[in-house]
Design a protein around this nucleic acid. Structure first.
Length: 256
DNA sequence: ATGGCTTACATAGTAAGA
């Protein structure tokens, strides 16, 4: 069972990129972020023609998350991250596919910091931690897939000082990610590449892709019941170099 | 080191991304 997460950065703008990748990578489950489309603008028919059922939560202009499943329709279990009924941003979706719970997480970016956006990011991370604890207690295979907008460690970003004040690398954010690991979640990509430099995002600006000035922001965290089934993982880096590519590359795992 | 791209919404120029 191959499960991928991909910040598509505009699903309609990049529909061809998405369909080409689906056809060649053949993931069984796909967690998508940054649809940048309303519910009615989600390209459900094209995705169905590609062989995938889908659930999604859209929003005007920004955010938006979806979960796709090959040959079946995901069964949604959460349409939003619990803990703040007033939060209207489409940043969380959770669904069951063939006995595995999979999320699409699009955590807030949080810039500039300090400020209200950063406060929202920290509060959102707290809510994610609380919900992750509940999922852990359910004792089932869970894959917390998505764009966390957190660089877990210094080795997960290229050599630079330009991000020192950026929300992505702040200690409060890294601590939130670390707490998830302490709860018992496994960072699948780091588990598969313990000593390698692995990036999933390269800014469009400043020649960051050609000079591999990247960041690792997209993560797949596994509950113990999923972690014992991990056999392979990867980043589809070549997707980032295509015409009209998203600024993120797909990250994926394979569970036995 | 640098907002130097790119998008949606709109139909010019902002806001947002990370």
């Amino acid at each position: 069972m191959k499960i991928a997460t991909f910040n598509i950065n505009g699903i309609n703008k990049r529909l061809k990129n998405l369909l080409d990748w689906l056809a060649e990578a053949e993931p069984d489950v796909v967690s998508l972020q940054e649809l940048k489309a309303t519910d009615t603008k989600f390209p459900g028919a094209a995705i169905e023609r590609a062989g995938y059922g889908a659930v999604w939560r859209g929003q005007t202009a920004w955010n938006g998350v979806a979960i796709l499943a090959r040959g079946t329709v995901p069964v949604p279990t959460q349409l939003e991250l619990p803990g703040d009924g007033g939060d209207r941003q489409a940043r969380y979706l959770e669904a069951a596919v063939n006995g595995v719970l999979v999320t699409s997480i699009y955590a807030p970016n949080g810039n500039p910091q300090p400020g209200p956006k950063f406060d929202y990011k920290l509060a959102w991370n707290d809510r994610l931690l609380a919900h992750a604890a509940e999922l852990m207690a359910a004792d089932v295979p869970v894959v917390l897939a998505g764009d966390y907008n957190i660089v877990p460690e210094p080795r997960d970003i290229y050599e630079t000082r330009s991000y020192d004040d950026n929300a992505l690398v702040q200690p409060q954010c890294r601590k939130a990610f670390q707490r998830l690991l302490e709860l018992g979640w496994t960072d699948a990509i780091r588990e598969a590449f313990p000593d390698e430099t692995v990036y999933t995002f390269w800014d469009y600006k400043r020649n960051r892709w050609p000079r591999n000035a990247g960041l690792r922001l997209d993560h797949l965290l596994l509950s113990p019941q999923a972690g014992t089934r991990l056999v392979e993982a990867g980043i589809d880096r070549h997707i980032r170099s295509r015409d009209g590519a998203s600024d993120h590359a797909p990250a994926w795992i394979r569970l036995e």
